[in-house]
């Protein structure tokens, strides 16, 4: 530590010029003489910078890129012209076709998206608290919600960029290789698929941020998040099956209407799982031929023209799924907000 005189040179000059203890109001002005960036923007910028340089993100990026390339390769080698060449929709086919050796990309994403969300968010708050950076940060003149929101928004910006680039790369590559023109409806469907994927990752991100607020140790929150994910991807179906077998009557003795009712009930139960919501929604968005997510009766099918649905109709079918995912994300974020805003910050 050197002579403090150096410190006063310039740094306190404004205060010094008044040559007496400054009144509170005067000091206020000296701090804000020009309009600086908002604290929120500064935190987001820093978070994104940290994120893209971190090993964790590079690993996740490599994982997603590999999955993407593998599933595209499988689908490209298996695409065959359909019955109606004018309704072929090549680019949607690239995303959904598979020969069974590998799940298609959108099915892959239903569990990779969860890993991505959990991986980016599980230590968002508690690692900063453990390292003692959180208390320093919150001792600065920023609002707490700015910090929490930045922790949520920054990874979202990064993954939106990531998926948009992947999607555009696929379209561009497809155009170059096949020379098939892309249709407007395909662009709409692919972009809505990307946004849906971002929403799905956002759900897992906000869940893992919530856990990182709740638990002091990053490992605890990571394990809990992975536990929840495993429960929904593996055990939840088993549990639902068990309940169905135990409580629902044998379908052999039921009327067709009742079977329909019970089938819908089972589907609704399965849709508590966010992975199921995502899989349903992407299936409808990427396969225009899919007309409904539940069973249809013969009466409903009667008179239906076997054409692909329009984009608007597909969106209408998946609207409940979208709302469900959005609601779950909001609930998790609201909970983390509730826990974080009034809690004591200590290192």
């Amino acid at each position: 530590m050197e002579n403090p005189a150096i410190y006063f040179k310039g740094l306190f000059s404004r205060v010094l010029r008044t040559s007496e203890p400054v009144a509170a109001g005067v000091h206020e002005k000296t701090v804000h003489y020009s309009k600086p960036a908002s604290p929120f923007a500064i935190i987001v910028k820093k978070e994104i910078g940290d994120l893209v340089r971190s090993w964790r993100f590079i690993v996740l990026l490599a994982l997603i890129a590999l999955t993407f390339l593998a599933s595209i390769y499988v689908s490209l080698t298996n695409i065959k012209p359909g019955a109606e060449p004018e309704r072929f929709l090549l680019y949607l086919k690239i995303l959904t076709t598979t020969d069974g050796s590998l799940p298609s990309f959108h099915i892959f994403m239903s569990f990779l998206g969860a890993i991505l969300g959990i991986g980016l968010g599980f230590d968002a708050v508690n690692s900063e608290q453990q390292n003692g950076t959180l208390i320093r940060l919150l001792a600065q003149p920023i609002y707490r919600d700015n910090f929490l929101l930045a922790k949520f928004i920054s990874p979202l910006i990064v993954i939106t960029t990531l998926f948009l680039s992947l999607g555009l790369l696929m379209i561009g590559g497809g155009l170059l290789i096949t020379g098939v023109m892309i249709e407007l409806v395909e662009i709409l469907r692919i972009i809505s698929f990307i946004l849906l994927t971002v929403l799905y990752v956002a759900f897992w991100l906000s869940l893992s941020i919530m856990l990182s607020v709740k638990f002091k140790q990053a490992t605890t929150s990571a394990l809990t998040a992975i536990g929840i994910w495993l429960f929904f991807t593996i055990f939840y179906k088993i549990v639902v099956n068990m309940i169905v077998k135990a409580f629902l009557p044998d379908p052999a003795f039921l009327l067709q209407e009742d079977i329909l009712y019970y089938n819908n009930l089972i589907l609704d139960l399965l849709r508590v799982s966010p992975g199921q919501l995502y899989a349903d929604a992407t299936t409808v968005l990427l396969m225009p031929a899919v007309r409904s997510l539940g069973p249809l009766t013969m009466e409903q099918m009667a008179g239906a023209i076997p054409t692909p649905l329009s984009f608007r109709e597909s969106v209408l079918i998946v609207w409940p799924q979208l709302s469900g995912l959005f609601a779950a994300t909001t609930v998790c974020f609201a909970l983390s907000y509730y826990w974080f805003m009034r809690r004591e910050i200590r290192s």
Binding site: P39, K46, R136
Partner: peptide, 26 residues
């Protein structure tokens, strides 16, 4: 604070600059 920490991935100057920005220094 007692037991404070810094962002280990950033260099010291960047740590300081970050805090300065948050305090509205142009």
């Amino acid at each position: 604070p007692d037991n404070m920490g810094f962002y280990d991935g950033l260099n010291a100057l960047d740590n300081l600059v970050y805090i300065a920005r948050l305090n509205g220094i142009p």
